[in-house]
Amino acid sequence: MAAMIEAHGLKKVFTTGDGKRIEAVKGVDLAVQKGEIFSLLGPNGAGKTTTINMISGLIEPTEGDASIGGHSITGEPLRAKALLGVIPQEIALYPKLSARQNLNFFGKMYGLSGADLNRRVDEVLDFIDLRDRQNDRVENFSGGMKRRVNIGVGLLHRPQVVYMDEPTVGIDPQNRRRVLDTVFRLRDEYNMTVLYTTHLMEEAQELSDRVGIIDHGEIIALGTQGELTQQVGEEDRLTIGIDAVQAPQQLLDALQTQIEGVTQAEFLAPTLPEGVDSEELERKGGKIRVLAKRGRKALPRILNLIEEHNVEVNSVEVREPDLEAVFLHLTGRALRD
């Protein structure tokens, strides 16, 4: 059976006002199966939204094409769009209209009307748990409630495929939990196919059947979490906070050469918001990041070595292989950098 979402060689080049070319997406291939939750994980500016915009028919690809349920988004846009519900990254609602009026209006845009429309709106209001506030203007809602309405609008027409573009940005943990649960419900109760984008490793890790890691407009890794973490082997990641603003190079060299299993050791300079004085910087100190096989076991020896170099350790964090490590492994950068 063909995939629910397919993309082939998607490229997008933006030309800015001053004639500069920005290659936002440089050839993305995707295939998401029916009933799957697929995450597109990548840092800000990686090209997630641009990709979503192309495969939802909002902007035209410079090259390549995508299809939804077998309908080309460029060839048969109306058929493809009818199968698709999109929950945009930014809240896109009419603030002066009530939750119900917003749902009603967009329902009509999806061709719903009459009793059918009313029933769907009721259903969605229940689903996003806003029935008691349905007649309040959206402008008076909290951020989390707006998010929920934003999601509800994308579900009105019972799409087979749902795109969610960073739906948890800027909301509190409680509402975020709600959103993540919603994603599972969409798959489990409605058998929907979900394409979810995020820059948060934890979300991708929790939700996804499969993950595509995107960076600088390219998918640099794609597979189940197991498949991806295998790429980095059994390396643990140790992050050691130190009270110096610079680590001696000999220390970093020593870590890599003298301790078995260490594949990488680097210093991360402290980062502070602009305008903070250097005293504050010194107090915060930097970090040493070490990648090591069986890192937990090697930890005592690593700490010893650091002390031998007269550097004081403030904190230690050990992480087993995860998507963050995969990203780090592939790009040399942390996802949040």
């Binding site: 909002l58 058929r79 609602l93 845009m109 609008v153």
Partner: peptide, 14 residues
């Protein structure tokens, strides 16, 4: 600017 125009465009509406 608010994205509601885009949202309309996302629906199967020419």
């Amino acid at each position: 600017r608010e994205g509601t125009m885009q949202r309309m465009m996302l629906s199967p509406t020419p």
